[in-house]
């Protein structure tokens, strides 16, 4: 899947990075908790979030993320978009809720960051 495919599937609007829509997308993560994003994500991941503050961009910078998807039609303010442009991020927004955006993309074959489902001794 490419970012262009995501734009089509989610009927999204491209806010930044029109020229990079052919970038391949490997995995996705959906969270409003940046600490969780920092814990589990690598650079080939797309971040789906409802959070539109500067820390979303800083988190993306630390992880070298390539694409952000804002849900419920959210559009971050100009200052945040400028910071995202400096990072060279592709930023898109969809009217879908976070849950629906994830479900739609999953149904089309996109998967999450692999996390083992087994419980281990440290969890007890």
């Amino acid at each position: 899947m490419t970012i262009a495919d995501m734009v089509r599937i989610l009927n999204a609007r491209v806010l930044l990075g029109e020229e990079k829509l052919d970038t391949p997308v490997h995995t996705a993560c959906c969270s409003d908790l940046m600490s969780d994003v920092l814990a589990f994500v690598d650079e080939k991941t797309v971040l789906i979030t409802g959070l539109t503050n500067p820390h979303v961009i800083r988190t993306s910078e630390m992880l070298d993320l390539k694409c952000l998807v804002f849900v419920r039609g959210k559009v971050p303010n100009d200052e945040i978009l400028e910071a995202a442009a400096e990072q060279g991020l592709v930023v898109i927004t969809t009217k879908a809720t976070a849950f629906s955006a994830c479900g739609i993309l999953y149904a089309e074959g996109l998967r999450g960051v692999p996390v083992p489902l087994e419980w281990n001794a440290e969890d007890e």
Partner: peptide, 15 residues
Amino acid sequence: SLGFGAGMGLPNMKR
């Protein structure tokens, strides 16, 4: 409210 305080910070640093 800014997306922090998930209790992942210190374990994530260690990891």
